[in-house]
């Protein structure tokens, strides 16, 4: 395990209005643009600005989602539709957990 606690790193909240380009998203995850295009076609990702693929922009907070999609595909052998289904179910579980937690008495 590496410790790197000599310097204090400043963290910035990723605002959902901030957008990144298709190229940036591909470099972030090391994937082809075609693969991101498949995620868009399955409804996993929604381009913030639609239109020509070259001009696509995505919300900056979609980076972890694409990373998760990539892991699910590679580790579990899912196709893109399977990835889409898994992500939707994971979102739903997260929402339900949050609601459960907000309503449980302490």
């Amino acid at each position: 395990m590496s410790r790197d606690t000599d310097t204090v790193l400043t963290a910035y909240v990723v605002e959902s209005q901030t957008t990144i380009t298709l190229g940036h998203l591909c470099r972030s995850c090391g994937v082809h643009a075609e693969w991101v295009q498949q995620l868009v076609a399955e409804g996993v990702l929604e381009p913030a600005a639609a239109g020509e693929r070259e001009r696509w922009a995505f919300s900056a907070d979609s980076v972890p989602r694409v990373h998760t999609a990539l892991r699910l595909q590679r580790d579990l052998g899912l196709n893109v539709s399977g990835v889409a289904l898994a992500l939707e179910l994971m979102d739903e579980i997260r929402t339900l957990r949050r609601q459960l937690d907000a309503h449980q008495e302490r």
Binding site: M1, S2, R3, D4, T5, D6, T7, V8, L9, T10, A11, Y12, V13, L70, R71, R74, D75
Partner: peptide, 15 residues
């Protein structure tokens, strides 16, 4: 493309 794991400790200013 395989999953790897790395444990790191970072000192972070949380906004």
């Amino acid at each position: 493309g395989r999953v790897t794991h790395r444990e790191r400790t970072l000192r972070v200013r949380i906004p």
